[in-house]
Simulated assay, not measured.
Amino acid sequence: MKLREINSYNKLRKFVEFPMELYRNDANYIPPLIQDELNVLSPKHNKAFKDARSRYWVVEDEGRIVGRIAGIIKPCDTDPSLMEARFGWLDFINNQEVLYHLLSAVEQWCLHEKIYSLKGPLGFNSFDRSGILVGGYNELPTMFGNYNYPYYAELLEAVGYKSKFHWVEYRIQVPKEIPKKFIKGAQTIRKRYGLKQVAIKNKNALRGYSEAIRMLINEAYQGISGFSEISQEQFAQLYQKFVQLIPRDYFSLIEDNTGELVGFGLVMPDLSKALKKMNGRFFPFGYWQLHRALKKSDTVDLLLIAVKPSFQHRGVHALIFEQIIPAVIRRGVLYVESTKELESNSDVRNLWGDFDHRQHKKSACFYRDLRSNSSIENLLSYK
């Protein structure tokens, strides 16, 4: 077993491609686009590197990669004046020694930088794949969801890592028509608080709201575990990457009587099956696969619902759904994937009570205090 740090583009490409070999015969693994992954991990292309640093390692056995990990140091979610450490892009064969070498590399970097805790898997921002799957191994993940073998969580716990928090995901059946409860609720909320739904005539009109959307997301999710504030540069990249692909009737913008944005919702066609067929490559037929999925998909992913804190618990989500549900019904969508929601966030989970739904996936973020002697001893015992 040899630990090697990635120090060239060719090696980084092998780092990105390793899971495609690890999960070669697994029907539920969805490979990301290789070029997208390379861009995310590159300081040249990812605006997150304005405030963040990263290092990447692989473990090789007789020249063959058997594990990979990324270490990330970035401003702390709760206090940007402090720095925190994360690990991400964690994949490895079912071997405790491989995991030991990978984690040790990141931990030694953390200690050198005088950072004494480590959590993950997390990316540079909340739109990167995150979490260790701990339930729902037979379900197809969304393009934003991690997939892994069951032994990942078992081996992490064996070396002293504990789950910090959990995310859950739901599969929601689209009703044949908007529930009357939502129509009545939306009318009441609209009148009571002087709110209105913004008519989005075209993508240029939507672009005019981009900064207001970014600020609303940051305000709504501030302090929530696993969320990283999105900078203007990062949001511009996300806007270019995703928004241009999504039909405008899959957006919902809610304003108050002063014209301030107080609510935002967004769904997008599910691309998992298309990405599976593309196998990480855009050429030669990737564009056709994506185009087909964007035009006709029986499932959409609920990417985001954000409500201004002063308007939370006031039923603003009814206005958001009132605007989006007709669009998905009109386009023949049968299911909505909720994507990750904090298990502790009962307000969000309660949104699905009025729909036929099931919780089908669960994932965890793991954490270790690097000053814990017992945890260090656990790691050393595997050296």
Rank of each mutant, 00 (worst) to 15 (best):
P269L: 07
G120H: 12
E5Q: 14
A52P: 06
I246R: 10
M143K: 08
I72Y: 08
Y335H: 14
P19T: 02
Y382H: 11
R24L: 12
L253R: 09
R192V: 10
R24F: 06
V159P: 00
L253H: 05
L334V: 07
V58D: 03
P80I: 04
I132E: 11
Q237S: 10
R13M: 13
D77A: 14
R55I: 02
C365I: 15
L22M: 04
V174M: 04
R4M: 12
V40F: 08
L245G: 08
D301K: 01
L261R: 10
L342V: 03
K184E: 15
L334I: 02
Q187K: 15
L238I: 09
R281Y: 12
V40G: 00
G67D: 12
P309L: 08
S346Q: 05
E84A: 10
K44R: 15
L195E: 13
G226Q: 11
N373T: 13
I230W: 11
F235N: 01
R314T: 01
N345F: 10
F251W: 12
L266I: 05
L99G: 01
V174P: 00
L261H: 05
F18M: 09
G223I: 10
R129L: 07
A364S: 15
P309A: 14
V168F: 09
D369N: 15
S346D: 14
L351Y: 14
N350E: 13
N204A: 14
I30N: 01
T188V: 15
G71K: 00
R4H: 11
Y147A: 05
M1N: 02
T78W: 03
S42T: 08
T258V: 02
G131L: 02
N7M: 10
T142A: 04
L155I: 04
L122W: 06
E21A: 02
Y335I: 07
G185K: 09
V328C: 05
M83R: 11
E377I: 12
Y100F: 15
P75N: 11
L102H: 07
D354I: 12
V262A: 02
F92H: 13
I178Y: 02
K276Q: 14
I189C: 04
A158P: 00
N350F: 00
L103A: 11
E233N: 13
L3C: 02
E97S: 07
D249M: 01
S310V: 01
